[in-house]
Design a protein around this nucleic acid. Structure first.
Lengths: 238, 238
DNA sequence: ATATTTTACTTGTAAATACAAGTTAAATGA
DNA sequence: TCATTTAACTTGTATTTACAAGTAAAATAT
């Protein structure tokens, strides 16, 4: 078995263009090279190039216009797999910190869990952790994660301080997030939540419940996220 | 010019499958016919069929699995272009009502509008309307819409009571929503909002600010939506 | 009986080709 | 000069062909 799975061509081009947009090589409003130009530049055929562009359009990086070309769309800043938009324009990566509240521990699932669990998940128990994410030293997210304890040796021992949970899962376990469902509510901050998010009690807080699907069938990630949306909003595309 | 624009084949198949899933012909967890079977059934080639399935997967109706097939994903109920999930399973279309608070009127844009406007939009003014949407006679959404007044003759005179705003735009003006951006916040209900949503003042309310893109370049729809998420959640896919 | 291999499916990737339809700017006409 | 037409782009749709890779069940060997 090859150590590095071969990457499809359309994926390769996707990553290149994605990076160029992120890095500002192509700025908002810019026209990307035409499909035929990309074919020449990268030695691919048009269907392959079109697949890359289609994925980019889907992910919101570009908008395609028949007869015109592919135009770079504005790019939101992302925290984890959430995007935020705030009043201050400088939401750079530098200003983002993660604080571990509860280190990953193995425990049984909570009774009345927010999503329905399979029998296999129930039996296995879950890895539980709590984190707070700060933007410019202001706590924005209080994130409670639940991961089914299926084939994840030594995960509780790993360091989560500076790495993204998803990067660890990808790099060490080859687990990729493919999509998911979420429920969004506005609630009052409980005493616990208000403490972590540095808010007064009963202030309105955004509550997200997420079930994330992975490339492994039957293996899901769950999180319950509380957001302080006083200064920043959750940003999304549809 | 033809009165009915010709519909691409991949779109036709998309609509058929989408309807079958919505109608329960294919239920959650079911395997869709294989790509080759669909080719035969609908007289298309595989790339065409694949484009339909790809769009369905993107919209969250199915999940594709290499070697297995396309599996029907569970389907949230939709209100307008938002999805809700509640404690009661029966969120049928019958239980959904729309109440007009302010009939469409032409007026200038509010100062400090939530999104940045182009010069053309500013000059044209906007069509303003307010609606409340009720689910099982409980007010769930208080929706304030802004539409740039560009080439929309007689729109203020039309009936919005029982029709979707988007259906009117599609059928009478050939305007389709292609996507958009949104910001989500949790706020306290103001007096006005609490009245329309039948809540106590200062209760937490979900606030969505949306900018919707259409098939017409430079023409956007805006809405500011306040949601009572006590009983129902906003449901989304990513 | 059990474990392994094979086989027949499924979707994924990729090429080469053709024409349709929308956009823009240059060429042409009055 | 100005309006119109044309031409040269762009992306959209669709066919055909070929093989790779993942899945599951049937066939085979132990």
């Amino acid at each position: 078995m090859s150590p590095q799975k071969s990457i499809p061509q359309h994926r390769r081009l996707y990553e290149v263009l994605r990076k160029h947009i992120s890095d500002g090589v192509y700025k908002e409003g810019d026209l990307l090279p035409s499909e035929n130009e990309l074919c020449q530049l990268f030695g691919m055929t048009r269907p392959t190039v079109r697949q890359s562009l289609s994925t980019l359009a889907n992910d919101g990086y570009i908008r395609k216009h028949q007869g015109k070309g592919s135009i770079v769309h504005h790019l939101p800043r992302e925290i984890g797999i959430l995007s935020v938009s705030g009043t201050t324009s400088a939401v750079g990566d530098r200003n983002l910190k993660t604080k571990i509240i509860v280190k990953p521990v193995l425990m049984p699932w909570p009774r009345d869990f927010m999503f329905q669990l399979s029998e296999l998940e129930k039996e296995s128990g879950c890895i539980y952790m709590e984190r707070v994410r700060l933007l410019e030293d202001v706590p924005i997210f209080y994130d409670i994660s639940y991961i089914a304890n299926i084939n994840l040796p030594r995960i509780t021992a790993r360091q989560f301080e500076n790495r993204s949970l998803f990067r660890i899962l990808r790099e060490h376990y080859r687990i990729e997030i493919k999509g998911g469902d979420q429920r969004i509510k506005a609630i009052r901050a409980s005493t616990k939540i208000s403490r972590f998010l540095n808010l007064k009690k009963d202030q309105p807080v955004l509550h997200l419940e997420r079930k994330m699907e992975t490339n492994i069938p039957g293996f899901f990630l769950y999180s319950s996220i509380f957001c302080n949306t006083e200064k920043y909003s959750i940003f999304g595309r549809f």
